[in-house]
Amino acid sequence: MKTLWGVDLGGTKIECVVMNAENNEILSRKRIPTEASKGYEHIISQIVKLIDMVKTETQIQPTAVGFSTPGTTDPTTQTMKNCNTTSMNGRPMKADIENALGVPVELANDANCFALAEATMGIVKDVLPDAKVVFGVILGTGVGGGVVVNGQLIQGRHGIGGEWGHNFFEEDGVMCYCGKTGCNENVFSGPALQQYYKKLSGYDLTMKEIYELHQAGTDPHATATLQHLVKSFGRAISSIVNVLDPDAIVIGGGVGNIDMIYTAFPEELKNWIFNNRKVETLFLKPKLGDSAGVFGAIELIRGY
């Protein structure tokens, strides 16, 4: 039996899934804490510990392992960059994991794995199985993206394919950790929207609470915040639609749980798309939830 091994490496937990390659049956699923505060070498040791646990349980040896990571591998230096688990930055993680496990590994960032999973195993496969181009969006604590064309990730020359969260949006915007001001991430991520609401109202609420107030129709500041989300997202996503013209856009992350955006975003996009105000791109809710990362990691090594 051929098996596929995927690992979702997060700052808080590491999850491993082993799947039967023939029918996608899950044979094993385990997770342990990352304990990232203990440093890079400890993270590698936790990966080895988890893989050993799964090998013992299944009595199966992996031939390759795919990893969803909180950053990306620089194609030139083969070291990690843009990781919010900062101890990984500048480290040759792919080589270190391969040396530790003794098998080939493939790495891609979490937004790319989300997009790949939803395109090949998730909602896009269910709703639009003939889709050629899919853009996956993460709208949560941060803003990210991933591009999938004909079932393959487009990671790019610099390894930053799909990094839409750090496109420039507004001249006088908030300073971003990436060194620029006014990035998409600082306009319509969850924390950015909460700050927008706080400036209007003086209150510090969660996005869930803000959305509930908007739905109740009792708080004009909440409604203004949702309108700000729709208008800014519609304008920002138009650059993706005008360049890639995706068949479908899948929206993950906490902000993606807001039902209204699946009708409001296409309407706002009409104002910016270069297509005579006609929008046929499908905006879809993800199917795989927090499993998308590990399933995307599995897809990285399906061809091995």
Rank of each mutant, 00 (worst) to 15 (best):
V133Y: 01
L213I: 00
E41L: 15
S239C: 07
K55F: 08
E267M: 03
D247F: 05
C176K: 04
M1V: 15
V17H: 11
I237W: 01
Q194L: 05
G90N: 11
S28P: 00
E267S: 03
T63N: 08
A117Y: 01
G202D: 10
R157W: 09
Q155C: 06
H228Y: 15
I298P: 08
G142M: 05
I301G: 14
I138H: 05
V148F: 07
E209A: 14
F67G: 02
I60S: 15
G293H: 09
N24V: 07
I26Y: 06
I26L: 14
G165R: 00
E57H: 02
G6Q: 05
F265W: 12
G39P: 10
R91W: 08
V134T: 12
G146E: 00
K198P: 05
N276L: 04
S189K: 04
V7I: 15
G303E: 15
V124H: 01
F233N: 02
L226G: 00
W5A: 02
D74C: 11
M175T: 13
G136L: 06
N150P: 02
I160Q: 00
V65Q: 13
I240Q: 09
K287L: 07
E212N: 15
M88K: 04
G151I: 03
R235I: 00
K199Y: 06
L193Q: 05
P75G: 04
A21F: 11
F274D: 02
K287P: 00
G145C: 04
L229F: 14
N150I: 00
E171L: 15
E118F: 12
M207D: 04
I301N: 13
A100V: 09
G136V: 05
V54Y: 01
I51C: 12
T12I: 09
G102D: 06
T206K: 12
P220V: 09
A100Y: 07
N257Q: 14
T86G: 01
Q227G: 12
E212S: 15
A192E: 07
T263Q: 15
E15D: 09
N276A: 08
E280K: 08
T206N: 11
D247M: 13
V65H: 13
W272R: 06
T79D: 04
I237Y: 07
K13S: 14
I44W: 13
N99T: 09
G11Y: 03
E35I: 02
G289P: 02
S189N: 07
E212D: 15
Q215T: 02
D204C: 10
L269T: 10
L226M: 14
Y197S: 04
C183T: 10
T34A: 14
V187T: 13
G71N: 04
E212F: 11
G142Y: 01
T76V: 08
Q78K: 13
T34R: 12
T56C: 11
T281Q: 01
G190I: 03
G10F: 13
I26W: 03
R277C: 08
R277F: 15
F168D: 05
G90S: 10
K55Q: 13
M88E: 08
N23E: 07
T72V: 15
E267F: 01
R302M: 12
I237V: 14
G217T: 06
K81M: 13
G71I: 13
L229C: 02
H228V: 07
W164D: 00
L288S: 06
G136D: 04
